Structures are given as structure tokens and as C-alpha cells.
Computed example of a mutant assay.
Amino acid sequence: MAVAVTAARLCQLAGRTVTSISVRHRRAVSLPARRCYVSVSPGKNLQFRLDERTAHSSLDLFKKDTGVIYRMLGLDPSHVQDNPERFRDWAVVFGDEKISRGRHYWEVTVKKSHEFRLGVAEALMSRDDCVGTNDSSWVFGYAQRKWFAMTSNKIVPVTLVGKPDRVGLLLDYEAGILGLVDVEKPTIIHTIRAQFKTPLCPAFGLWDGELITHSGLEEPEGLK
């Protein structure tokens, strides 16, 4: 059963990059009409890079913007170009592809990280929130040596995963399914079900170590 999580507990799980927590009115995000995202081409495998303009100042992109590494000190936020697409309080970055239809698969290699989140979020999600804490994002997370599925501030434990170095994500937009995939078998370990109504982006939260994304992949035969 899903368990509601308090704001303080979420900050412990997610490693928020601010030193204090306060209850505040969340600002509405007004993003530019002309965005950096591109639409998924029909009949092609989803291929994306990480979008630097969304990356929190503690995150550095590398490997031609397919990987992200967490820097404990990070950049001074005042030294990062200010724009409404950048996450301000949380170590989150989006992919540069928006998805509004179809079935898509990608994988993520995890290196030296003990706290991260992988999933999708609405392209217009508030940049004051962390992925998983609102009804605009759906993620699988890893913290305190345990996996969980998370959306709308609710956590559901995911068992029988362990800590693989590489996992897959399967998104079926019309069916409203986001699956965490064991790439070795392959099989879907856990499924999040939702009603997707607006364009989504691949979404990543990272509080130590690094992640490398692998897109443009065929969906494994065992999942079809």
C-alpha cells in the first residue's frame, strides 16, 4: 500500500540541496513557448540527450550530454544561467525529448550512486519540485539500499531488485504504464500506472555518483 511521506522525510530521502526546509507557496512556472525539446518521430526508437538548461547547478553533464555526475559543492547558482527551465532546489535534470505517444524503452547505467531517481515527468512540471513529489512525475528511486516507486508524495516499496549496475525503463504512453526493467532477463520488475495527459520527458534525480543514459534502443523481445 502506498505510504504518504512528509516533506521532511522526502528531503532526507532525496538529499535536497538547501540547508533548511520551509513551507511556501510554489510558484507557477511560465516556460517559454518555444522550447528546446523535440518531438518523438513516429516509427523511430526514442533517442535523447540530457538538457543542460534544466540541470540543477550541482549536476555536470558529460559523455556528449548522455551522462550526469553529482558534484557535492557544485556551481554557485548565481554562476549558472538563470532560466525558467532550470531546477532550483533539487538535483534534477530532464532529457531533451518530449513524448506524447507511443511505446519507448531506454536504459540507465548507475555508477557509485546510492541515491537516485529515474522516470518521466511532465515537460511543464514545476522547477521548484523534486521528481516523485507531485502528480506531474512518476519515478523509480533508490535510497537507503532500497528501491521504491514514487508519485504524488507516495512511496511504494519495490522488492526483488537488489542494486543492478544497469536498469531499463519502459514507457507506454497510451496504456499509461511506466515499467522498471531487469535488463538481464529481461522482465518488468514493477509497474507504475497513470493517465498521461500532457507531453512527458525522461527525468533523473541524482544525489551522489553518476548516471549514464542509453537511448535509441530496441525494446527487448521478452517485454513485447
Score class of each variant (00 low, 15 high):
5 V>E: 06
166 R>P: 00
8 A>F: 10
198 T>V: 14
219 E>V: 11
20 S>P: 04
146 K>Y: 04
165 D>L: 05
103 R>D: 00
208 D>Y: 01
19 T>R: 15
87 F>Y: 03
177 I>T: 14
1 M>H: 14
86 R>S: 01
177 I>D: 09
121 A>K: 02
182 D>F: 06
132 G>T: 05
8 A>C: 08
200 L>Y: 04
123 A>I: 12
107 E>L: 02
99 I>V: 14
89 D>W: 00
154 K>W: 00
9 R>V: 11
115 E>F: 05
183 V>W: 03
219 E>C: 09
44 K>Y: 08
45 N>C: 14
118 L>N: 01
95 G>N: 08
57 S>N: 13
136 S>Y: 12
57 S>M: 10
22 S>N: 11
155 I>M: 12
55 A>V: 10
143 A>M: 04
135 D>S: 15
144 Q>G: 10
110 V>W: 03
135 D>V: 11
38 V>N: 06
126 S>Y: 02
218 E>V: 12
15 G>K: 03
107 E>V: 01
209 G>W: 06
131 V>I: 15
53 R>C: 05
190 H>C: 09
96 D>A: 05
190 H>K: 13
83 N>Y: 07
84 P>W: 06
63 K>G: 06
96 D>T: 07
96 D>K: 05
91 A>K: 02
125 M>P: 01
206 L>I: 04
7 A>K: 12
87 F>I: 00
139 V>E: 03
166 R>V: 05
60 D>E: 14
34 R>D: 13
183 V>E: 04
54 T>L: 00
62 F>R: 08
178 L>M: 07
162 G>W: 04
1 M>T: 12
207 W>S: 07
33 A>R: 15
77 P>R: 02
5 V>L: 11
224 K>Q: 08
30 S>M: 15
63 K>V: 09
85 E>F: 07
52 E>S: 08
